[in-house]
């Protein structure tokens, strides 16, 4: 039963990774930007929720409803002011720009909040502690289930948006061929800004779950970025449902790895990530390029 339980907990953990990775996947899929500040943006979202909770005493979920529009607006402005300019000068500049942004966010958070560790767990109500014992070795936590349900709803909503609405078609058209989209009368700048706004909003949701599940501090971002990045790669770059499945695969690998040895948890995830990289991009063989 311990393995079954480990797999189940892995699915819950993986749903969290999928939420974290979703925004990363959108930005890569639409603009080919690898946002190295994505983890820090999620942590920034967690801090904004934390501040609202501290000041007003409302539950974390209510505070998130207030933080979300702030983060969405931030994403929109970020694209128009920083990323849009970096996109014009080649493929490496956005990477550098988001790397710089990552450092800026971390240091701003250090400055304002000190390096103390915080958590949103205490302000999220009974959902953090409630669980159901299915059998003796199998338990379902309310929080795990909540994250899984939210993740599935989120990906379903994005799927509907991209396949059923004109705004979604426009986003896919711009992702596939921005030049042709411009010639069809689509303002690609505004489409990009919307995509980043959505990505940053979803990153904030990931930050909320991070804060409720465990703890965060100003430099938590890069670790979250690594898990999110592995999720995107395992799931197939820029593929939406692949990202959800990739997150779950990573989560399961980590919890099953932890059954082998507690210290092996994160390493098991890394090994899965490497295996996927080798199989997908090496044609089944480990290819070492000389040129």
């Amino acid at each position: 039963m311990t393995v079954t339980n480990a797999v189940l907990q892995g699915v819950f953990l993986g749903a969290f990774y999928a939420v974290l990775a979703c925004g990363l996947s959108i930005m890569f899929g639409v603009m080919r930007i690898i946002n190295l500040a994505h983890g820090d943006v999620a942590v920034l979202g967690a801090y904004i929720v934390y501040v609202i909770v501290e000041r007003t005493g409302v539950p974390a979920f209510v505070a998130f409803a207030v933080a979300l529009p702030v983060m969405v607006l931030l994403g929109y402005v970020l694209q128009l002011t920083v990323l849009e300019r970096s996109l014009k000068s080649g493929i490496l500049t956005p990477l550098l720009a988001t790397f710089g942004l990552s450092i800026v966010i971390q240091n701003l958070l250090q400055l304002v909040f000190s390096p103390d560790v915080r958590s949103l767990g205490g302000s999220a109500g009974s959902v953090t502690t409630a669980s159901w014992q299915v059998t003796s070795g199998l338990s379902v936590s309310a929080l795990g289930l909540l994250v899984l349900v939210v993740a599935v709803l989120l990906f379903a909503a994005l799927q509907l948006f991209l396949s059923k609405t004109r705004a979604g078609w426009i986003m896919r058209a711009t992702a596939e061929d921005a030049d042709a989209a411009e010639l069809a009368g689509i303002d690609s700048r505004s489409v990009y800004a919307r995509a980043t706004a959505i990505a940053v909003g979803i990153a904030a949701l990931g930050g909320l779950f991070l804060g409720i599940r465990s703890v965060f501090d100003p430099v938590s971002g890069p670790t979250q970025l690594i898990f999110a990045f592995e999720t995107v790669v395992i799931g197939g770059m820029g593929s939406l449902w692949g990202t959800l499945l990739g997150g779950i695969a990573l989560g399961v690998a980590q919890t099953v790895g932890a059954q082998i040895h507690p210290q092996f948890a994160v390493m098991a995830g890394h090994l899965l990530f490497l295996a996927v990289l080798i199989v997908r991009f090496g044609g089944g063989r480990l290819v070492l390029r000389t040129a």
């Binding site: 004109r166 078609w169 426009i170 896919r172 058209a173 596939e176 061929d177 030049d179 042709a180 989209a181 010639l183 069809a184 009368g185 689509i186």
Partner: peptide, 16 residues
């Protein structure tokens, strides 16, 4: 230069 994953109708309707 069509948008390959979009259907014929979607390709038409994304235009301004």
């Amino acid at each position: 230069r069509l948008f390959p994953s979009l259907t014929v109708e979607e390709n038409l309707r994304v235009a301004s």
